[in-house]
Design a protein around this nucleic acid. Structure first.
Lengths: 244, 244
DNA sequence: GAAGTCATTTTTGTATACAATGAATCGACG
DNA sequence: CGTCGATTCATTGTATACAAAAATGACTTC
């Protein structure tokens, strides 16, 4: 529990910044996203409280909100843990994101003002540069920022909020299931290609580009079938017909 | 604050049923859905605590979760209130639900086993009967149950959970914006038509039926531009022509 | 009479104490 | 030696006390 993560937080506390449940939510979310808090990590209330310099009341509210955001598992009488979505849920999350982000970019195609379009292209450009110089954390940062901006720009705010949630959840599972052999989950040209379609104002082409992009991303992951508790239960629970 | 709603709850408490934050969430959600707690209603923590016979700790957790579910507004240092989504948000919620529920039924078409299909048809039948005898609460109950079952049956659980959320939110705004002249928001034949397509296994037809159903439902609402505070200002500022 | 200001009250924010639950450890027994 | 069981420890669940903030209302002043 005493890792680099603590230092950031304690620095912030020392700097006199007011800590509220929102701060804790943000910090933990970021830490999970960047895998400084790997899935399964225990998050005891008192420990978190000490780290942030607040009491359990505040921590509890933060954990409840993180549970609503699918970032942590909060089960009765048990310590909260960083959630580790299953392979199946990972596939389903990607499918949901394809649907929602596809719709968002279809709505957005041809509707962006110059400032918004430029901001998106800037993020794409910076992602490319970060990739060129091999700065993977920066690349992820800009890639996330681009998608996050799309969610914010969505004319349908309900869909936008749903997309924000799905971006977070896919990021978590990407960190979780990334093939160790791959240095990066960078898909060359995908983001610029999307921006071209957005500028051209072709909703269905934009939707297709997003769909392909997310499918390619999912294929970069190692989602081979893996043993889960439930499968084991099913197998051990009821004897097979051959067993009598 | 002393309405029929309290009685139900106090009965439950008296019956010795254990009250937890989940119970409070359920109860409030139901009460909001059935408009026993109309939008804007103040939900002070102590009052709620007294009603349910628990302390503020439990109530607070429930309110936080209800806020995450978009049922209540929880703003710092202010009493939580039942949320009243704007007209714009209502339209966006319907659009989101068309997208998600359309996808869910497309996934479901031709994939339902007999038990599931039968359960759905039973709900549809009961809705029709309730409508025939003019029992609107029962009709709503069965209509909601049908859609809720679709969400549960979704092979993609992530989409299913999103749909559950959207069903709740649309129900709230239907109660909020229903034309007073209409006795019911019943659309004759829509649900049986959907079930036919599900059984026939035609994903795209099922998607279309859902899309049309939800558009028709939205059109039953009174979503004309309404006075917000600013509009009120404008109206009260200048007397109407007939008023002199 | 209207507007601003200050005290009062209501309500939420936070910390903490105690109860209850679950996990872990150690020991006894087969 | 392994397994079952009870005790101990760690951790969450709940209630409550106090602090801080916002809403209310009365009062003063112009």
């Amino acid at each position: 529990m005493s890792n680099a993560w603590q230092e950031d937080v304690q620095a912030a506390v020392a700097a006199g910044i007011r800590i509220s449940d929102q701060h804790i939510v943000d910090k933990v979310r970021r830490a999970v996203l960047t895998q400084r808090l790997p899935p399964g990590t225990r998050l005891p209330e008192v420990t978190l409280g000490e780290v942030f310099g607040v009491s359990r009341s505040v921590v509890r509210k933060a954990l409840t909100r993180l549970a609503a955001d699918h970032v942590v598992d909060q089960r009765p009488n048990q310590v909260a843990r960083v959630r580790a979505p299953s392979i199946e849920e990972t596939r389903e999350t990607f499918a949901a994101r394809r649907l929602v982000e596809g719709e968002v970019v279809a709505l957005l195609a041809g509707q962006l003002d110059d400032a918004a379009q430029l901001a998106l292209e800037q993020e794409a450009q910076r992602e490319i540069e970060a990739h060129r110089r091999g700065d993977e954390p920066a690349r992820i940062e800009h890639s996330l920022a681009l998608h996050h901006r799309l969610a914010e720009l969505s004319p349908n705010r309900v869909l936008g909020a749903m997309l924000t949630d799905l971006i977070l959840r896919t990021s978590i599972v990407i960190a979780l299931y990334k093939r160790p052999s791959l240095a990066s989950c960078y898909l060359d040209g995908d983001h610029p290609r999307l921006l071209t379609q957005l500028r051209a104002g072709e909703p269905e082409r934009a939707r297709e580009v997003v769909d392909e992009h997310l499918r390619a991303l999912e294929n970069l992951l190692d989602l081979g079938p893996r043993e889960t508790e439930t499968d084991l239960m099913a197998i051990l629970g009821r004897p097979s017909p051959a067993e009598a």
